[in-house]
Design a binder for these strands. Structure first.
Length: 280
DNA sequence: CGAGGTACCTGACAGC
DNA sequence: TGCTGTCAGGTACCTC
């Protein structure tokens, strides 16, 4: 699912292919998105693509930005004469535009950016670039791995949380960017039972977890993210991290660490996978 | 304030 | 075949 590695992979794609293009036309097919804001983006050039946690920010040449959260099923797929000449592997999503295409950005030089979203959970907001940080989602977000998440803060945060350690990892207000997949895998790598209360973890365990969070996110980035439902990068290609899950979506299979059988339970309403044998 | 539950939305899939 | 029910996941919002 779109978590830090997936959104970062998408952001890199924007940087490589979309930045520099000028928006000539916007076709909004879903009335929930961008309606009334077309005038702020048409005729403007895309100058940067930034990421905050699982959020994406596209900066425009007129001092406006498009803040985006692709939620569960949002996809951005870029096409241009140059991209069409690339020899892309046969894992392309098919049918763009499709009935799930919600917005189409038409650029100069024959380029097009499709925004697809099956479940329509995604949001897209146009705001002055200087005010992106005031949008509630960004304003409330905690520090994020590889950026400003320090161990001292992480340790304090985990120890004072009253719920399960897994819920704490997934709380965007506590840490930005970690979702269900990477929380499950990080806890397996740190050999910690996801049901445990954060307050009950030792400093040593918290250090292992801190390192594990970074390790699994890095691995996710290396494989271009995970495609569980329909995440794709800017070219429409699926990620590969799902082939390297430690425990996520592997109920009944063997733990890669100890060979124990992976179990699935629910924690705070979320599917939770762990190895009862080595995660204690 | 914090943590848990649920709505949001729709396709996939299991079971009848 | 086709219908019904359940599940999935990130966040907003409500409730305790």
């Amino acid at each position: 699912m779109p978590e830090l590695p997936e959104v970062e992979t998408l952001r890199k794609g924007f940087e490589k292919y979309v930045v520099g293009h000028k928006i000539l036309e916007v076709e909004v097919r879903d009335k929930k998105l961008l309606v009334g804001y077309e005038k702020y983006v048409v005729g403007k050039k895309i100058i940067a693509a930034r990421r905050f946690g699982k959020g994406l920010v596209i900066d425009l040449s007129n001092g406006s930005s498009i803040a985006i959260h692709i939620k569960l099923t949002g996809q951005f797929v870029f096409r241009s004469p140059a991209v069409n000449n690339l020899k892309l592997p046969k894992q392309l999503i098919d049918g763009i535009p499709s009935k799930f295409t919600r917005v189409i950005f038409k650029f100069d030089r024959g380029a097009v950016l499709y925004f697809n979203d099956v479940r329509r959970f995604a949001w897209m907001k146009v705001v002055p670039t200087s005010e992106v940080g005031r949008l509630p989602f960004f304003a409330g977000m905690g520090p994020e791995p590889f950026k400003d998440l320090g161990f001292e803060y992480f340790q304090t945060m985990i120890k004072k949380s009253s719920g399960s350690v897994k819920s704490a990892l997934m709380d965007q207000k506590k840490i930005g960017g970690v979702g269900n997949i990477y929380a499950n895998d990080a806890l397996n790598l740190a050999r910690i039972d996801p049901r445990r209360k954060g307050a009950g973890l030792s400093t040593e365990e918290i250090k292992k977890l801190f390192d594990a969070v970074h390790t699994v996110l890095k691995k996710g980035l290396k494989y271009g993210g995970a495609t569980e439902i329909n995440y794709v990068n800017i070219l429409g290609l699926v990620g590969q991290y799902q082939n390297h899950f430690l425990v996520y979506d592997r109920e009944g299979e063997k733990c890669k660490n100890c060979g124990g059988i992976i179990k699935k339970i629910k924690i705070a309403g979320r599917g939770t996978y762990f190895c009862p044998n080595c995660q204690v």
